[in-house]
């Protein structure tokens, strides 16, 4: 029983990191109907940025997180500028969400992700970079029969804070309302004077901030940072987005947590190498039985 409780706690914190990544996918999908294939690299860059900050200045974790948030926003804006904007010659809804846009930006974001990954390998080498022990977040904490680490709590706490913050931004700020408006009805957004291009940039900035923070949290949790680290969590977050109905934030968060917990509990039955199969299994089941996502029935966006 204790084992299950422990795996549940770990699964929740892993699921939270999937949720942070999945929200980036979801926000961008809502606004542009495209999948940003460079999102996993935003996560990796967040982790590397955190590592650089820690090895250079050794500041407290909060300062690292703030620096990574800034880097994430910057990377998101650059990504939009390089991989998405050049293809957006018209901004009416038909071309904004057209198939041609979807396919061309799919390729351009994939290309950019390969470039980013290779550049990181050239700069840092392909081996794991270890995080200084003092900066790692893996001090064990005994909670009754269960032993978790302070990292589990930090990840849960930071992710929960960011989710709450995101909800506040989306409901009570002009930027957030604009993101939801463009996601809901880009033509209508133009008629109320929303700057659609600028809103798209903001969407990338916000989504990438969440992704970059997920990267640094996971990097400091496991103590290993490497150029390819974004791939697997990127795929899992993508699965969570699909399960959640592509453009529903609550759907993506719930599915990400479900995925994290199931993966974590699956190690009770199979070797942990196989736990990656859980995500693919979920994806197949979702696509066969819930093609619009488990929460996608209502087609609510953002």
């Amino acid at each position: 029983m204790d084992f299950y409780l422990q795996q549940l706690a770990i699964g929740l914190s892993v699921g939270m990191t999937y949720a942070l990544i999945a929200i980036g996918f979801t926000l961008i999908f809502g606004v542009l109907n495209v999948v940003n294939f460079a999102h996993g690299e935003v996560y990796t860059i967040g982790a590397f940025a955190g590592l650089l900050v820690v090895t250079t200045f050794a500041p407290p974790l909060l300062a690292v997180l703030l620096a990574v948030l800034a880097v994430g926003a910057f990377v998101g804006v650059g990504l939009e500028r390089l991989a998405f904007r050049p293809f957006r010659r018209f901004s009416d809804e038909a071309s904004l969400k057209s198939r041609a846009m979807r396919e061309s930006t799919l390729m351009s974001s994939l290309a950019l992700s390969i470039i980013a990954r290779e550049a990181l390998e050239i700069a840092f080498g392909s081996r794991f970079q270890s995080v200084p022990v003092a900066a790692m977040i893996n001090q064990p904490i005994a909670l009754g029969p269960v032993t978790i680490t302070n990292g589990d709590l930090i990840i849960l706490g930071v992710a929960a804070l960011m989710l709450i913050g995101l909800q506040y931004v989306l409901r009570h700020t002009q930027v957030g309302l604009s993101i939801r408006a463009v996601s809901n009805n880009p033509l209508g957004a133009k008629y109320v004077g929303v700057d659609v291009d600028r809103t798209i940039v903001w969407t990338f900035a916000v989504g990438s901030m969440l992704g970059a923070v997920a990267g640094v949290l996971v990097g400091f949790y496991y103590g290993a940072i490497f150029a390819n680290m974004g791939f697997t969590p990127g795929v899992k977050a993508f699965v969570a987005m699909v399960m959640g109905g592509l453009s529903s934030i609550p759907g993506a968060v719930v599915c990400a947590l479900l995925l994290g917990v199931c993966e974590s509990l699956s190690t009770a039955f199979v070797s942990s190498v196989w736990s990656d199969m859980v995500a693919y299994g979920f994806l197949i089941v979702t696509l066969i039985f819930f093609p619009r996502g488990i929460f996608g029935g209502a087609r609510e966006r953002v």
Binding site: L177, A181, N185, G188, A189
Partner: peptide
């Protein structure tokens, strides 16, 4: 403009 088809934000 109050455009054709209203173009309100239906899920807000």
């Amino acid at each position: 403009q109050a455009p054709e088809g209203r173009q309100i934000f239906s899920n807000m």
